[in-house]
Design a protein around this nucleic acid. Structure first.
Ligand code: MN
Ligand code: MN
Ligand code: ZN
Ligand code: ZN
Lengths: 142, 142
DNA sequence: ATGCTTATTGAAAAATATTATCAATAAGGA
DNA sequence: TCCTTATTGATAATATTTTTCAATAAGCAT
């Protein structure tokens, strides 16, 4: 199901603002901050307020149409997509973002942690940082 | 080496503010936000300004005396300790925090990710969320 | 196509969170 | 005890996120 129907089925309306944001995020490799999203849309002629960017990011995130990731500096950035449980690798230079699945390998680690800490583990936060293929090239000449 | 010498060796001074903050964090199981640290110290008579809390958290973090963790809502919180590479489990109810090592198991996963995404992985962000032993008890009666 | 209902928007302000300035203070070595 | 200078508190400045509210427009029912 495409994102429009997904939103519609959840009772939300398809607005220009949401289309612009989704188009932008879908066509952008790098994760974008709310401010960057606002600026990018303004540059392509949109009048959308920053407030609507925040509001719609919340809506889109609730409906699993965008993912929030943590930039290396700890700030939040957003990227399109995200069906099912998955995680992200972020380029620490350009914020290029890719996703991957396969954190089942945690099962053993979780058991250890639960035994050691007496916690009951229920979820996790996982991201990898590194260099995307583009930035690896540039890195060579440093 | 204790935290005072660690700071001293790095050229920092041992101040009341830093002592108060370290004492508080060392004696607190739960991760605390800058605001919570400020409030807790104020309640025990300290005049320290919130600004100094921020400043000293930065210093203490640089010197590996405190760790920053992400609360379930994405906000930053701080907890004492942290020798060497390690990660944290956070109680999503009370922010109780415990640490663990042992993310070597990532080696395989990283290889897969690098193959799939063409990224060169250089670091990671990992935290587990769950319920601490205390909160597990209370959870039963919900 | 037209009107109706109400979710959504933009503008503005408010609330939070974080950082910068600067004179006064105090840590630590001489 | 004195000196140097890192550190502090007070204040202001930025930056980030949320709230309010009247105007607008999406989508459904005529
Ligand atoms: Mn995703
Ligand atoms: Mn730690
Ligand atoms: Zn890159
Ligand atoms: Zn707990």
């Amino acid at each position: 199901m495409d994102w429009k129907n997904k939103l519609r089925n959840a009772g939300y309306r398809i607005t220009d603002a949401r289309e612009q944001m989704m188009d932008l995020l879908i066509n952008t490799q790098t994760a974008l901050s709310p401010m960057q999203i606002h600026k990018a849309l303004a540059e392509q002629g949109s009048q959308m307020g920053l407030v609507s960017v925040y509001r719609n990011l919340a809506v889109l995130q609730e409906n699993d149409l965008v993912c929030m990731v943590f930039a290396p500096d700890g700030s939040a950035a957003y990227t399109a997509g995200g069906i099912g449980h998955h995680h992200h690798v972020l380029c620490q230079r350009c914020l290029n973002s890719a996703s991957f699945e396969g954190c089942e390998g945690f099962a053993d680690l979780i058991q250890e942690i639960e035994a050691q800490t007496q916690f009951k583990v229920q979820g996790h936060l996982l991201q990898f940082y590194g260099l995307c293929s583009e930035c690896q090239k540039n890195e060579i000449h440093v």
